[in-house]
Design a protein around this nucleic acid. Structure first.
Lengths: 243, 243
DNA sequence: GGAATAGTGTCTTTCAGACACTATCTG
DNA sequence: CAGATAGTGTCTGAAAGACACTATTCC
């Protein structure tokens, strides 16, 4: 194999004879519900399981010669009942390798985070459980297996991407695409607040986001405004072109 | 398995019958050479390989019911000829899952970074190649397979840990332990410069490190100084206790 | 004293955080 | 006009970057 010494002649046949682990992909699926509404919320997709019974993350085995991405799409289709949108990539979090973690067989779990727009989760099997400020899902019972750790990792990674650190931020106002292409500063800020679990000052937020935003203009180059529900209508923004 | 639905009766036997991938652990082993010297350098352990021939990272298959850590120790012992020091943990970087990446069999590669003190690499098989300022190893030929990507990830992660960001840094002056317990500010700064590939101002560096350092004292509570080669002797520091 | 290195004082610039004010819409 | 939301000016404090000075050693 790539990582081993070159095979001696005649060793090839033996390669497949080595015991191999089952490999599962477990998914912490996160979304922001009602992203254009008054109180967007960061939520986790949890499914009830039996034997052992309790809340758990969706996951499944890697089939022969499948990639992680294909396994992810398969888990979403068969177990969640949705399709993986184009361009969304699972993010690797951790490999669980305790040989006794599955008492039936030697199995590795490759844990991934998957952040989806709410729209992609329409009709999904399972429950969208709010993530509390401390990063844990708001559940009466803890998640089964090592799934609590996975969620903690997933939320930490997501919050890091949404924390603005001026020089280091990748220049996307909404890195995981919870909103559509166009949004107002208030809508964007509410989504950020939902993700990081804290309130943000509107003035500082606007200033820090400015470099990554471009106002939406119509055919005449006029700035497009949102249709205000109450108060002064806000400008619409979209992601600024790379500088 | 943990990530699947509970097994139906009689399915258990079939579980092991599913085709499974070979899983290899590939290691980007990084160190800082001559960490107490005048010009420490960040270097990567590279081994020459044949068929295909070229420079590559050490790696090997996970044996039955072994963990990543144990596989790492095994690779280091059998292929590098060193022992994994206590307490050093491989850091997961990436999973390579292209089903055609190994033309002999279906194999996943779980790439890890491993940062070792120079001392642990005494007598290691392979070459310690300097990492250039741009993060790539200073080699005439590129690394084989996807190993160039692994190294780039490993170096980026390491540099992030050594970049001081006041509030976010984990409070260790030398997170990956390239130096021993005691060191002067100059020695610490040279190691940081080797890791991040850039020069650092001594005054600013001293100020930023101060919260994470404690001066070494002898039995009488007197501050211990280094034996100066030239000039004024410097205070010895060690990691400050957690605040 | 001179060379070399250790260590500190301080100025400037930048920027996050916070407050307050002005602007523009609906009813 | 009142209420509500959008958007901006500005002050303050913290901290990074840069410069310069003082301190202590060996020769």
């Amino acid at each position: 194999m790539l990582s081993d010494n070159p095979p001696e002649p005649g060793r090839r046949a033996g390669l497949d004879a080595f015991p191999r682990p089952g490999v599962t992909v477990d998914l912490a699926v996160l979304t922001v519900t009602d992203p254009y509404g008054d109180r967007p919320e960061l939520r986790l997709l949890v499914q009830e399981r039996t034997a052992p019974s309790g809340p758990a993350l969706p996951g499944g085995f890697m089939r022969e010669r499948w990639t992680v991405a294909r396994t992810t799409a398969d888990v979403l289709e068969r177990k969640v009942g949705i399709t993986l949108p184009e361009g969304v990539r699972p993010r690797l979090l951790r490999v669980f390798d305790d040989p006794d973690r599955d008492d039936r067989t030697w199995a590795l779990s490759v844990a991934h985070a998957l952040c989806l727009p709410e729209r992609a989760l329409a009709g999904a099997r399972g429950e969208l459980v709010p993530i509390r400020e401390d990063g844990r899902p708001d559940l009466p019972a803890p998640l089964l297996f090592d799934h609590g750790t996975i969620v903690a990792d997933a939320v930490a990674g997501l919050r890091e991407r949404y924390e603005i650190r001026q020089r280091f931020v990748d220049s996307r106002p909404d890195p995981d695409g919870f909103l559509d292409a166009e949004f107002t500063l208030l809508q964007l800020r509410r989504v950020h607040e939902a993700v990081v679990g804290d309130e943000l000052h509107k003035d500082n937020f606007a200033r820090r986001m400015q470099p990554f935003l471009a106002p939406v203009t119509d055919g005449d180059g006029e700035v497009v405004l949102s249709t205000a529900q109450r108060g002064r209508p806000a400008r619409l923004f979209r992601r600024a072109p790379e500088r």
